[in-house]
């Protein structure tokens, strides 16, 4: 019994930190979501579910949810596919592969603010490198107002997100690929399996745990892609790149409606929780063992 208590004690610092840094703020957020607190005043009123109703009715909130889904789909599909492709190409531990892995991983160590600033200049329609390069290559018709057009701005930022994090996810896939026993490939080849068959029957099913991590992490990351959007467009033009995290930020810190922002955060938490649960369920079904 005493031993059990001692063991439980080892959990205490972690539990306290988790409680203080996560559970308490979440509970406080839930509490304030039922108030009209402005974030500054010492007093506030309880408003019941008004903030939830206001959020759900808000045109900007609806736009933010829609943009978030577009952004998430673009990032999850492109980043997972690209990082898997890179992992398949660079899984062998040759010298060139190691060098290229480091190169592709490099953007992940940059701060998102730096990445956002760099790409803001790259995308600038007047002085930006992208349009200038396209013009120099005779591709004038391909030039676009990359982050100024309401139709493509969200995808332009999604591209930057993929550029910055595909290398990071590639490492997860490489770890997964390297844990697949070589004998499985050998026996598949002896039995005459072609590359596609080997990928479909062996690689992909055994990569499911890695894919679960990549897809779940990328989904959460794309929902929380606050800094890139804040630096590059601040949710503009006219809310075309507003996502839930920027909506919450603007509501709390520009409009001083902390109660409403807290309700938005709770809805955000619920959406993320549901999505993550659904992904784990879906990808768990694909898992194989050996």
């Amino acid at each position: 019994m005493a031993r059990k208590r001692t063991l439980l004690l080892f959990l205490l610092p972690g539990v306290l930190l988790y409680g203080f840094l996560f559970l308490y703020p979440t509970a406080a957020g839930l509490f304030y979501s039922f108030t009209d607190w402005d974030g500054l005043s010492p007093s506030f009123r309880f408003v019941g579910l008004d903030n939830y109703a206001t959020s759900l009715e808000s045109l900007v909130f609806q736009k933010a949810v829609f943009n978030n889904v577009k952004f998430m789909l673009a990032v999850v599909i492109a980043q997972s596919a690209l990082s898997l492709g890179l992992a398949l190409l660079l899984a062998r531990n040759s010298r060139s592969s190691t060098a290229l892995r480091a190169l592709y991983f490099f953007p992940a160590i940059l701060s998102s603010v730096s990445v956002g600033l760099i790409w803001s200049f790259v995308y600038d329609p007047g002085i930006g490198m992208l349009n200038a390069s396209l013009r120099a290559a005779g591709l004038e018709s391909w030039t676009r107002n990359w982050i100024g057009s309401k139709d493509i701005a969200i995808y332009s930022i999604a591209f930057v997100q993929v550029w910055a994090h595909a290398g990071q996810m590639m490492i997860v896939f490489i770890a997964g690929l390297q844990s697949i026993p070589a004998e499985l490939y050998e026996s598949a080849r002896i039995e005459g399996g072609n590359r596609l068959q080997i990928f479909r029957r062996i690689t992909w099913p055994l990569l499911a745990p890695s894919a679960t991590i990549v897809v779940a992490y990328t989904t959460i990351q794309s929902f929380k892609a606050f800094d890139l959007i804040f630096v590059m467009t601040d949710g503009g033009p006219n809310h075309a790149t507003e996502i839930l995290s920027t909506y919450i930020y603007h509501t709390a810190f520009a409009s001083y409606r902390f109660g409403l922002a807290s309700a938005g955060s709770m809805l955000f938490l619920a959406v993320l929780g549901l999505l993550t649960y659904a992904q784990f369920k879906a990808l768990r079904a694909d898992r194989a063992s050996y």
């Binding site: 803001s120 600038d124 007047g126 107002n145 990359w146």
Partner: peptide
Amino acid sequence: FQPDALGTKDAA
């Protein structure tokens, strides 16, 4: 305005 003014930031 300069072309694509909507994508132009203050510094540019």
